[in-house]
Nucleic acid binder design. Sequence first.
DNA 1: GTCTATAACCGGATAGAC
DNA 2: GTCTATCCGGTTATAGAC
Lengths: 230, 230
Amino acid sequence: MTPPTAKADQTRARILEAAMQLFREKGYEQTTMRAVADAAGVSTGNAYYYFKSKDEMIQAFYARTHTEHLAAVGAILEQGGTLEQRLLGVMRAKLDTIAPYHRFAGVLFRTAADPGSPLNPFSEESLPVRSESTDVFARVLKGSRTKLPEDLAAELPQLLWTYHMGVILFWIHDTSKGHARSYRLMEGTVGLVVKLIKLARNPLLAPVRKASLKLLREIRGDDDRPPAAA
Amino acid sequence: MTPPTAKADQTRARILEAAMQLFREKGYEQTTMRAVADAAGVSTGNAYYYFKSKDEMIQAFYARTHTEHLAAVGAILEQGGTLEQRLLGVMRAKLDTIAPYHRFAGVLFRTAADPGSPLNPFSEESLPVRSESTDVFARVLKGSRTKLPEDLAAELPQLLWTYHMGVILFWIHDTSKGHARSYRLMEGTVGLVVKLIKLARNPLLAPVRKASLKLLREIRGDDDRPPAAA
DNA sequence: GTCTATAACCGGATAGAC
DNA sequence: GTCTATCCGGTTATAGAC
């Protein structure tokens, strides 16, 4: 068993640290790999030993915010509360966590456009990578006392994750002071989402619900026939 | 009146044509500006005289599909029909129009991420550029016999445009044969959207509707104070 | 003033020696 | 794991031709 090589990890961390600082100071485009390597006290070639590309540094940062978010969210998820309170707490924590990085969020978005990226909201392949992230929303649901029809409960965590990506997409383009509009959007839509969820429990709407969920599974492609057959 | 064309226009067209063909054959990343210039029989420097960047060629192509879409949609919009039929026709025409370019659609998406781009669904600045595009949806609504509350009617064209961007976003990542999933998504969601619009006319739901529209105006930011120039 | 070309720049990325 | 040297391609500077 190789212990997670001590010195290597430090070097990697040093490079990432330098990159983050420079990105913040000068922005992503204005920061050259040469500058990052310099600041970290390594050669450019060496920097590429640790990060396959400049973009990958951003992804590394993203992973970091994800960890921070998980930490921030622990308390909220354990203390009970209504569905709305819980969802609101988690979403607010998300916006709070990513706030310091708004400046180069555009790159993150570009990354998300790559079909192979774990940030891509639609790709099937990256689903496993996303599971930790969707799991947060599963816990949001489970901890609330809101009872849900089974078919809906199965899909809702993913749906909420997609919703949360939509909010982030807005946030990326939000130039309002303190990202006030994003918070406003989030607060307003969380309310709508919760109302909608409660509405979906109404037995009268079961046919609509079932049809919608069927559509969802179809377009996701894990419905009945595996795409190979087609 | 300047007569529509000098030799310049032809050169520009030749470059764009060469670019399109190469992009299709080899993909966007694999096509160099030098190759495009070569194929068009001009120098690289000259190619940059006509297009500020490689990305701008993609945008030029996008403008072209937009024109094609407008043409394709004319008949549909003039022949009446229900709201659902009209929206379905317009959306189907859209997917049909962009189909040949799926291969490098990812770049389009990346372009859309740029806050200054007219494709960016959220930016205020680019709203005028989008107006021709949202106008199609205004005509979809106007031609149908569906009566709408005024406040909703004012916002709906833009909302439908945003919806249509969402479908395209899905399409970009859709790897199913013939983009079947995108068509399925579109057909299914058009139905939902129309149902929702009809639901919104219900007087009992007026408070929800008004609150939602208020939220929409708030986050768009044309509510009270205009943001300072960027 | 509109067009075209050549040469160079710059920075992300890679090869390969140590 | 680290470096140096180099490649490659988008982009720009600039000079000249129509």
